[in-house]
């Protein structure tokens, strides 16, 4: 019997996801025994996945330019099972925050405005590189995805679990739980009187960070990482994305934030104060999932505004 084959395609990424595969360490030897690795750019010198196709395709990274899109479609055609591998691929990841700006704004900022740039002729990139799309897209904007393996990057243990499931022909799925459900920190009472930025005050390392007023995205984030950040004494930043059936991770977090404040109105911080205590709301609550949120990108109103209508009573 021929071994199942695997191709790993790399789009708009930092390569952390590929390194996570290598991080399987000794388990990698077992995986390589069981699977025929046909294509992975960080390890092998091929240009594309094999024409005859593979059993499983992993795609890491979001789709930012036309080349990415082409490569994604090619991998989809050539794979029986396609896995969105990592937060960038599944939700756009951190690069998805660029969707707060238009493509032109980004180009201008990068090629003209940055302090370290000398570009007196204001030349915007040469045409020989693949043209950028208007936005960064998660892969499911374009192709059908069979499995999602979230995380920035996905934890090696889950990678091994997914591979085992695929080898044994079992379904892979994450439990419908949140990071909080797996978090070992002590949850006592939801009675926050003030939200604070991490590092600006004492942190009790055994107690839930959110209950101490620090932004921890546990309640709005899909479980699966075994709460690796809170366990390592750092708040969850939400890299597993929202739980199933939740569209917008920020909506979930805002919902949670409403209810963890102390009940006694005389002790509760005013709503406006809370807003000030959450600087960069989109960057905090949708750090990995802005490109996969309800709006997916900023609403860019054209600069020439139509005259407002006269109000009638």
């Amino acid at each position: 019997m021929t071994k199942p084959s695997l191709a790993v395609e790399t789009l708009s990424i930092c390569s952390g996801c590929e390194i996570a595969i290598l991080d399987l360490h000794l388990a990698l030897a077992d995986v390589l025994d069981a699977i025929d690795l046909k294509y992975i750019q960080v390890l092998m010198d091929h240009r594309e996945p094999p024409k005859e196709g593979v059993t499983v395709g992993f795609v890491s990274g979001g789709v930012r330019n036309e080349e990415h899109l082409e490569r994604l479609k090619m991998l989809r055609e050539r794979s029986q099972i396609l896995v969105a591998f990592g937060a960038c691929s599944a939700f756009g990841g951190v690069p998805g925050l660029a969707n707060l700006h238009t493509k032109d704004e980004i180009m201008e900022e990068v090629y003209i405005n940055t302090k370290s740039t000398v570009n007196p002729k204001k030349i915007i990139p040469p045409k020989i590189v693949p043209p950028m799309l208007e936005e960064l897209h998660p892969v499911d904007d374009f192709v059908k995805v069979d499995y999602v393996l979230p995380g920035c990057p996905p934890p090696p243990k889950l990678i091994a679990e997914l591979v085992t499931c695929l080898l044994e022909g079992r379904e892979f799925h994450l439990e419908p739980k949140t990071v909080c459900d797996q978090c070992p920190l002590i949850k006592e009472e939801k009675a926050v009187t003030e939200f604070k930025r991490w590092g600006t005050d004492i942190v009790f390392t055994e107690r839930c960070f959110l209950e101490q007023g620090y932004q921890c995205l546990g309640p709005s984030t899909q479980a699966g990482c075994e709460a690796r950040c809170p366990t390592a004494l750092s708040p969850c930043r939400g890299c597993f994305g929202p739980t199933e059936n939740v569209e917008d991770q920020a909506a979930k977090m805002i919902g949670a934030l409403g209810s963890i404040v102390v009940q006694d109105p005389s002790k509760a911080p005013a709503p406006e104060k809370i807003v000030k205590e959450v600087p960069d709301l989109v960057g905090t609550y949708l750090r990995f999932t802005f490109a996969h949120s309800t709006f997916k990108k900023a609403v860019h109103t054209p600069t020439v505004k139509t005259k407002p209508m006269k109000a009638t009573t």
């Binding site: 805002i254 209810s259 709301l281 989109v282 609550y285 609403v299």
Partner: peptide, 20 residues
């Protein structure tokens, strides 16, 4: 309603940040 008042304040900020 107290919870709602906080959520609405945060949602307004969210809308502002994304240009609505």
């Amino acid at each position: 309603n107290y919870q709602t008042s906080r959520r609405v304040a945060l949602l307004k900020e969210y809308l502002k940040e994304i240009g609505l």
